[in-house]
Design a protein around this nucleic acid. Structure first.
Length: 477
RNA sequence: GGCGCCGUAGCCAAGCUGGUAAGGCAGAGGACUGCAAAUCCUCGAUCCCCGGUUCGAGUCCGGGCGGCGCCUCCA
């Protein structure tokens, strides 16, 4: 069995074969750090995380790079509006992005290169394209890539260049281009650029790099001329990735990327997310409203990455409950007492089944929805096997916990849920004290008092569970 | 206009190379409990419509209807 991927380039499923056995190079187009990233962005980044974790889970050594776009129209505009330099402006949002990523359990990748740190290399890159005749300096001081010089242009998107309506969308200030469809590698500096500190010297004139260029340069610099996977949102297929291919392959003479994977855009309340529709959410807002990051993570991976996913508060509520079921399940396993003499159970078999079903699901182009189904099927089966059986063999319990942990090393749900449920020692001690008081009340059959304590703790998000061997408690959110 | 996706139970969502349908949430009944919580058991689908291929189609083909996305330096 092997991992199969839907390659945008071939428009079909392909069996994944790394360039180098056991090793995978991945590049994911990151956020433009001009504002808070929203949950739509995070659907994509959570998918990156799934790819990252699953490749490692599958035994690959992975080098994963996600760029931070810190120089473009929006970051410059933002910096000028704030009256600060571009670095200060974008630095703040880069931090917020990493913080939100961390909250959602997105594992840090190997490098987060920022465009502004690669300007020298971008200049070199452009020089190569100029030398080979793939680019030209226009009268306005900009450097454009000449797509007429790249025969394969349009292949990723599957467009026939001759059908492109030349000139249909040409801005008036772009009359310097030889061909309307040529794109900028370098833009001449404007006053605004200078004010934001977003202008650099280059042999052909002062200016700043074009957007598409950074990914080509950072990918080839941080990874290699040819990499295995390149990820991005569906909007990036054209022209961004198309342009990256053209630039990179013209500059290096090597294939740029083996597999292109694109994430479908998230819908919110059945519509494209937009501020004007009022369906615009950031992770921070949702967390401030009391939603568990684990719930957000669950909701955003509940559909396979190429499928339509409609984010709603109702759905988030459902995810919250699903997460709680997982948390309760793990607690139940943890609390199991063990005895070498206990009867054998199906847990080892069920654990093997889970790992197998999980692998099959993820191997099928990262079908996280199916992977979640495998996990919950496991929960059901194990709960059933454990019914009325508080004691099992240590090996059985460990097999179940091991499989659960293994799967969660990819899904990251329990990992995040645990973090958001952690409470301080002081509160924990208080809870224990109240539970003792309640036990005493129960002993005296003063159920009103016992229930009052239970209600009081519930107010604080602490739920009590009475069992044969005493009262257990858990944090609910 | 170009490219593409989707339409499966109240909601979300799997279903590979065709053989009468995973999982989550919500809901109903029951068991357990002082009451709860957790858990278990039981209960739910004309798979958008119409044709076609086939012994047999959610699953393939054709045609409709409906929804959505990208094509704009938006993941």
């Amino acid at each position: 069995m092997a991992l199969k991927l839907r390659n945008t380039m071939s428009r079909s499923m392909e069996t994944f074969e790394p360039l180098e056995p056991g090793r995978v190079l991945v590049y994911g187009c990151g956020p433009t750090v001009y504002d808070h990233a929203h949950i739509g962005n995070f659907r994509a980044f959570l998918f990156y995380d799934l790819v990252h974790r699953y490749l490692e889970w599958s035994g690959y050594e992975v080098r994963f790079v996600v760029n931070l776009t810190d120089v473009d129209d929006r970051t410059i505009r933002g910096a000028v509006a704030e009256g600060v330099g571009i670095a200060e402006h974008t630095g703040r949002f880069a931090e917020l992005f990493l913080a939100d990523s961390g909250a959602l359990g997105i594992r840090p990748v190997d490098a987060y290169p920022r465009a502004t740190e690669y300007v020298d290399r971008m200049v070199e890159f452009i020089t190569r394209l100029l030398d080979s005749g793939h680019a030209y300096v226009a009268e306005d001081g900009a450097v454009y890539y000449s797509i007429a010089r790249f025969a394969e242009y349009g292949r990723l998107k599957g467009i026939d260049l001759s059908t492109l309506r030349a000139g249909a969308r040409v801005a008036q200030d772009e009359y310097e281009k030889e061909d309307a469809r040529d794109f900028a590698l370098w833009k001449a500096a404007t006053d605004e650029d200078e004010r934001a500190g977003a202008a650099w010297d280059a042999p052909w004139g002062r200016g700043r790099p074009g957007w598409h260029l950074e990914c080509s340069v950072m990918s080839t610099t941080e990874l290699a001329d040819t990499i295995d996977l390149h990820l991005g949102g569906e909007d990036l297929v054209f022209p961004h990735h198309e342009n990256e291919i053209a630039q990179s392959e013209a500059a290096t003479g090597e294939p740029f990327v083996h597999y292109w994977l694109h994430v479908k855009h998230l819908l919110v309340d059945g519509r494209k997310m937009s501020k004007s529709l009022g369906n615009f959410f950031t992770v921070r807002e949702l967390v401030d409203q009391g939603f568990d990051p684990a719930s957000i993570r669950h909701q955003l991976i509940s559909a396979q990455y190429r499928k339509e996913l409609n984010f709603t508060l109702e759905g988030l509520e459902a995810s919250k409950n699903a997460i709680q079921r997982l948390v309760d399940f793990e607690s139940r396993l943890d609390a199991l007492s063990t005895d070498a003499e206990a009867a054998r159970t199906d847990l080892p078999t069920l654990a093997d089944d889970l790992l197998e079903e999980f692998r099959v699901a993820m191997d099928d182009d990262f079908n996280s929805a199916d992977a979640l189904a495998a996990l919950f099927t496991f929960v059901n089966r194990v709960n059933g096997a454990l019914d009325g059986r508080p004691t099992v063999r240590a090996g059985d319990r460990d097999a179940a916990l091991g499989a659960l942990g293994s799967v969660d090393a990819v899904l990251g749900l329990l990992e995040v849920a645990r973090a958001s449920r952690a409470i301080g020692d002081e509160l924990a001690a208080h809870v224990e004290e109240r539970i003792r008081a309640r036990a005493e009340a129960k002993r005296q059959r003063d159920f009103a008092a016992a229930d009052a304590i239970r209600d009081e703790l519930a107010e604080q998000g602490i739920v009590l569970e009475d069992g044969p061997d005493g009262t257990r408690w858990k944090v609910v959110r």
